[in-house]
């Protein structure tokens, strides 16, 4: 199966009137591959992520996704019901702010179990057992299962959000600045955890970040965006060690000076 892409993006553009959100983006994503989309704020990386994840309709272009039956489907021509089903089963979306991706007033167990219930799991004991398992996989003490995320630290909330997304065994996860807003030491632990899960589960992921260290640790391949355009892309190590575009060279050198 690995000789077929999971996700095929072709000519995706988003305009806001005359202003460019992102322009003419094309790439393929392979099973098990992690792609980082890197850029400064206003570069168009978040607009692109929203288009790819169908949270936003692009002005032009197409995105095809290989469904579990092996058939490619054009995401922008799916019904809303199908898209929403895909998003809560075969995809995950990790928000920068965990409060945007969690239900803050229900317990950690219910947060993890919600997707299972949404796809028809009707056995409380099984749902709870699965939630318990996932809490320990994201290093949250299982005696916190009945606590609300309101009582959790920022790092725990982010790990809970990840568990909530992965419980249905998705094949593709979108992440929007997953370590943004966290303390540096907490960031490092979260990155280790995410890297481990991605490897263990063979996930494909598209990670948006302004942080080249995140791209370096998590991604196999990266794209650099500026003013809505992808200006450079390639294997992550190649781009970071041998940047070709002056803008990328500037980004990399500004990191190294710190």
């Amino acid at each position: 199966m690995n000789d077929t892409p999971l996700f095929k993006v072709s000519g995706v553009s988003k305009f806001y009137g005359q202003r460019i959100g992102c322009k003419d983006v094309s790439f393929d994503l392979w099973p098990g591959e992690v792609l980082a989309i890197v850029g400064e704020s206003g570069s168009g990386k978040t607009t692109l992520l929203n288009c790819l994840s169908t949270r936003l309709m692009p002005t032009a272009g197409s995105v095809e996704y290989r469904m579990r039956d092996g058939q490619f489907r054009d995401l922008y021509h799916m019904s809303e019901a199908e898209r929403r089903f895909l998003m809560r089963t075969d995809w995950g979306f990790v928000h920068q702010n965990p409060a945007d991706g969690l239900r803050m007033t229900v317990s950690a167990g219910a947060n993890v179990g919600e997707r299972l219930m949404a796809i028809g799991d009707r056995h409380y004991g099984n749902i709870r057992a699965t939630a318990t398992d996932w809490l320990s996989r994201v290093e949250i003490s299982t005696d916190r299962i009945d606590d609300q995320p309101r009582a959790f630290s920022g790092g725990m909330r982010q790990r809970l959000q990840i568990a909530r997304n992965l419980v249905t065994g998705p094949r593709l996860v979108f992440m929007d600045e997953p370590t943004g807003g966290l303390d540096v030491s907490v960031q490092a632990r979260l990155l280790d955890l995410v890297r481990g899960l991605v490897n263990d589960l063979g996930l494909s992921a598209i990670v948006v970040t302004h942080d080249l260290a995140v791209a370096r640790l998590l991604s196999h391949r990266m794209m650099v965006m500026k003013d809505g355009y992808v200006i450079e892309q390639g294997l992550t190590d190649r781009v970071l060690d041998d940047p070709r575009e002056p803008y990328t060279q500037l980004l990399v050198s500004s990191i190294l000076q710190v």
Partner: peptide, 22 residues
């Protein structure tokens, strides 16, 4: 409204789950 239209009722069971957990 969208949840009703698309028959997405997982949330109802989240409420019942919380009842049992508590």
């Amino acid at each position: 409204r969208k949840m009703h239209a698309l028959e997405e009722y997982g949330l109802m069971h989240v409420k019942l789950y919380e009842d049992i957990a508590r």
